[in-house]
């Protein structure tokens, strides 16, 4: 295939667009050819890379808060945690969470309370069957329940001793994808083999 050597202006524009990931595969191949052993081209490429990086390293400025509306999520947060939001609303909430420290922090608090409630032992053994709302309430209610609590404690003891039914509900897949997602935010991570499934023997 005949190789077309672009004029210097077009060559530079190709390099620049290459750095931005904006080339077609055919153009990418041209760039690769141009860089192959041509020291002048490589020098130009590196200079453009440096300029691009310098602009991208400009610190991101915080927008003065008074310019933005106070549109926090309120009760949508609980619905979000419980998976009760329909798709569009769910996406609005997630988009908001990405940018809003206050709502993230509130979400976190709600999540902790929710986890505390969910991890109560033996609750389904109580006569009322009602879940207390916060951990502080659980102590009081348990001992108001008196003999029911004693029965629950025995059941719990058996459960703990035998060790069944209290397995954490996650897989290594869950853990692995979370680690990979977090690690991929570090500089350079994405150049590494990030994640894959291996058929183990």
């Amino acid at each position: 295939m005949a190789r077309v050597i672009p004029d210097p202006e077009r060559r530079g524009a190709l390099f620049s667009a290459y750095l931005d990931g904006q080339l077609t595969p055919a153009e990418v191949a041209v760039v690769s050819d141009l860089l192959d052993g041509d020291t002048e081209a490589i020098a130009e490429f590196r200079a453009l890379m440096g300029v691009r990086r310098a602009v991208r390293l400009l610190p991101e400025l915080e927008v003065p808060p008074h310019l933005l509306p106070d549109g926090h999520l309120g009760d949508r947060l609980s619905a979000y945690l419980d998976g009760e939001l329909v798709t569009l609303e769910h996406r609005r909430v997630t988009h908001h969470l990405v940018d809003c420290v206050d709502c993230r922090s509130e979400l976190h608090e709600l999540d902790r309370a929710r986890i505390a409630v969910r991890s109560l032992p033996g609750v389904d053994m109580t006569a009322t069957g009602e879940m207390p709302a916060v951990p502080a309430a659980r102590f009081r209610r348990r001992f108001v329940a008196g003999s029911v609590a004693a029965a629950a404690a025995v059941a719990l003891f058996v459960g703990l001793t035998v060790g069944g039914g209290d397995q954490p509900a996650f897989s290594l897949d869950d853990l692995g994808s979370r680690h990979v997602a977090r690690a991929s935010a570090e500089p350079g991570f994405a150049v590494l083999p990030p994640s894959m499934e291996v058929a183990l023997p």
């Binding site: 991101e60 400025l61 927008v63 933005l68 509306p69 549109g71 988009h95 908001h96 990405v98 940018d99």
Partner: peptide, 16 residues
């Protein structure tokens, strides 16, 4: 998105 979403999501970028 809602208007508030735009403000929160893009306000900083517009400012920059």
């Amino acid at each position: 998105p809602s208007w508030e979403d735009v403000a929160h999501r893009y306000g900083r970028k517009i400012y920059n």
